[in-house]
Design a protein around this nucleic acid. Structure first.
Length: 428
RNA sequence: GUGGCCUUAGCUCAAUCGGCAGAGCAUCGGAUUGUGGCUCCGAAGGUCACGGGUUCGAGCCCCGUAGGCCACCCCA
């Protein structure tokens, strides 16, 4: 067992893993560009208050999962690693006066998030999210646009059977009354509530709705639904979001038990799952509308909507579904030589090829030719450029490692020859 | 944060009743002159996760810790 290892809940993305992430990030960047979102980077840590105010102090994310940074001096500011990107981006929106930009401001970012909870497969203390935020448009059309974008990301990534769950969780005009109605419903059955659920009754009743406790099933079935208690404005908004989703052909299912764990959400809430694997653990992504957040962070009242998609989980599902991303990392050519000691010659030719724009490696180990060729083959190289006596006539052997054929090529023609071969390889 | 299962070489796994830590793959080297994939030979690779206890003797039994996984909690 090694002396040092990656901290609990973190992992190394080895080249094969990293290639999968690169591909996902490329898809995200390409997709968001097409939809008019512009990339933004905010710090990996913020003043703790940004998260406490924004996300809500009585949420699990802040209460027990926030990665707090120990202050270095007594008067130091209190910082925490970001558990999600939205609060930081909205902080930036306010700080830089983005309300003076053409609205809506559409932003995207992809990067690591941090939550101090107990690790499990697909659940890490450092995990990656692809995030999108559209600020300054009250919807409902843009709600559907954002949901459709999220859904399309999975499609382009190659994830099969992704299902969208949507709900409306009301707004300050109607949610408080609904919360009281819901509390009243459960209070009538306090005695039958499991201990953990009883504890949540007064603190956050909405959470009882998505409880997986079998004893709660019957009770939840009879519980009043938020969608039956929306104010007129929220109800109309929700209907319109659904109509837009229908028009766009996005497959979705209304789940009136869907609530979100962060306080800032209003009205539209949605999550993405692989069909048949609903249940909080396996969420591939989620998001919603947060019309009160900018104001909470000191800005003018500004509506907004966005989502965060978990890249680690997407990678996990892709692996489960057997989707493999072919990424070209193998060199086009490896320069080998008959004289093991002539590293100068091999490196010089490789440098020449690289200067010509080709992916080339030189075998700098001092081993015999056979070993060099063997290593080149294992590396997945298409060609081996073999340096030998022919150099005296200004020629090298170019061996096609897959076909097992080889021919003499003049040094002066080498770059053009290999470049042409690369092109024909790519096209079959 | 709660409960359970697990941890032996880089990877996948063996090791009889408590009695000398092994294999396959991968890595590196060799098989008479400048040609890979197959084959053969060899080398290297271990604090048996870590710490304690029981025992003549512990990879194996007991306790603790760490890490991973599973179910919760909750999120991505």
């Amino acid at each position: 067992m090694p002396t040092y290892r990656a901290p609990r809940g973190t992992r190394d993305l080895l080249p094969a893993d990293r290639a999968v992430f690169d591909r996902l990030m490329r898809i995200a960047a390409d997709l968001t560009a097409r939809y008019g979102f512009r990339p933004i980077e905010t710090p990996l840590f913020e003043q703790t208050a940004v998260f406490e105010r924004g996300i809500g102090e009585i949420t699990d994310v802040v209460e027990k999962e926030l990665f707090r940074i120990a202050p270095r001096t007594e008067e130091a500011e209190s910082w925490a690693l970001r558990p999600e990107p939205t609060a930081g981006i909205m902080r930036a929106y306010v700080q830089h006066g983005m309300q003076t930009w053409p609205q809506p401001v559409k932003l995207t970012t992809t990067g690591p998030m941090f939550r101090y909870d107990r690790p499990q497969a697909g659940r890490y203390r450092q995990f990656w999210q692809f995030d999108v935020e559209a600020v300054g448009d009250a919807g409902p059309a843009i709600d559907a646009e954002v949901i459709e974008l999220g859904h399309r990301f999975y499609t382009e990534a190659g994830v099969r059977d992704v299902e969208v769950l949507v709900n409306s969780i009301g707004d300050p005009a109607c949610r408080p009354a609904y919360v009281e109605t819901l509390k009243a419903h459960y209070r009538g059955h306090v005695a039958t509530l499991p201990p953990t659920e009883r504890d949540r009754l007064e603190r956050n009743v909405l959470r009882l709705l998505d409880s997986k406790d079998p004893d709660m099933a019957a009770l939840n079935a009879g519980a009043p639904r938020i969608t039956d208690h929306l104010c007129d404005a929220c109800a109309a908004h929700f209907e319109s979001v659904k109509a837009h989703l229908d028009a766009l052909g996005v497959p979705y299912r209304v789940d009136s038990g869907l609530v979100r764990g962060l306080d800032y959400y209003t009205r539209t809430a949605f999550e993405f799952y692989v069909a048949g694997r609903e249940g909080q653990q396996q969420a591939l992504g989620g998001g919603g509308r947060y019309d009160g957040l900018v104001e909470l962070l000191g800005g003018r009242p500004t509506p907004g909507i966005g989502f965060g998609l978990g890249l680690d989980r997407v990678a996990l599902v892709l692996a489960e579904q057997g989707v493999v991303a072919e990424v070209e990392t193998a060199p086009l050519a490896v320069v080998v030589g008959a004289d093991p000691e002539d590293t100068v010659g091999r490196l010089r030719v490789a440098t020449l090829l690289r200067a010509g724009g080709l992916r080339a490696r030189a075998d700098l180990g001092r081993r015999k030719l056979g070993r060099q060729l063997e290593a080149a083959g294992k590396d997945g190289a298409h060609f081996a450029v073999i340096l030998g006596d022919e150099l005296a006539d200004g020629q090298v052997q170019v061996r096609d490692l897959q076909a097992g054929t080889q021919r003499l090529v003049a040094m002066g023609d080498l770059i053009r020859d290999l470049a042409r071969a690369e092109g024909s390889h790519k096209h079959g």
